[in-house]
């Protein structure tokens, strides 16, 4: 495949940055998107240029590092996939492909496609944990948990913190991420104890980080590589309401 790749290049946090065009030839449709980026970087290095900085780690859809806004969508056109799970067969020979970093005030660009997502870490640090040591895995049935709750908690826990929800949301809202992190704990007995403080603190931190407000567009749910559901946002809306109405 022959492609034109338009990539956001930005030297550092204070650089203005711009889109730069690159031509690529002989890309295999079986290559992953990140492999294509590797080929492009080799080409840039051979021409004496500075390779494109981009985040990646696991390359199998579990670390959530590979943040790229590809052709107008977070992680590109695929559904339920991260950038590393996207293959070049999703594109056509001769295509022009836009590659941009996540855009949000709370995710400032560090360099090229690399953004600073420590705002997510600070949200977790504000309450996304259980304060006491809950010990080793419990004997089955020692702690009764409704099957539906266990499933919902597990689904929420599959969030990999990639930030695609923020990147894709027109308001740069982090509601899907935060609601997944609130839900995965509050649905289970060990997490219920601190549920009120947790939701109040995490939402407070979310607001302080400068994420936008949710308009329920539902874009996050569509673009989330893990299929995190809007039901989590509704659950957080409920929990926050009860917590703020009843907290002393």
């Amino acid at each position: 495949m022959n492609l034109t790749i338009k990539v956001w290049r930005q030297d550092g946090p204070s650089d203005k940055g711009k889109m730069v065009d690159y031509k690529l030839t002989d890309i295999s449709p079986d290559q992953s998107f990140l492999e294509m980026m590797d080929v492009l970087n080799n080409q840039i290095i051979e021409e004496g240029g500075e390779p494109i900085a981009f985040d990646h780690d696991c390359r199998e859809g579990i670390c959530g590092m590979c943040s790229m806004y590809i052709n107008g969508e977070a992680h590109g056109p695929g559904r339920g996939v991260t950038t590393c799970q996207l293959h070049m067969r999703s594109f056509n020979d001769g295509d022009t492909i836009y590659v941009e970093p996540w855009r949000a005030k709370a995710f400032p660009v560090i360099k090229d496609l690399v953004v600073d997502r420590t705002s997510f870490d600070r949200i977790i640090a504000s309450g996304g944990y259980v304060s006491v040591n809950t010990g080793a895995a419990q004997d089955a049935n020692a702690l009764p948990v409704n099957k539906d709750d266990a499933d919902a908690a597990f689904d929420a826990a599959t969030c990999i913190g990639c930030g695609a929800c923020v990147a894709t949301c027109k308001n740069s809202s982090a509601m899907l991420f935060v609601s997944a992190k609130v839900s995965q704990l509050s649905l289970l007995p060990q997490g219920k104890v601190e549920a009120h403080d947790r939701v109040l603190n995490m939402v407070k931190q979310m607001d302080e980080e400068g994420f936008g407000n949710c308009t329920n567009t539902g874009a996050c749910e569509v673009e989330c590589p893990k299929g995190i559901s809007l039901e989590n946002i509704a659950r957080m809306n409920r929990e926050f309401m009860f917590a703020s109405l009843t907290n002393k």
Partner: peptide, 15 residues
């Protein structure tokens, strides 16, 4: 919350 816009965006794909 989004000071720099995307150069290329396709929001109609998801909302």
């Amino acid at each position: 919350a989004r000071p720099v816009k995307y150069a290329h965006n396709k929001p109609e794909k998801n909302s």
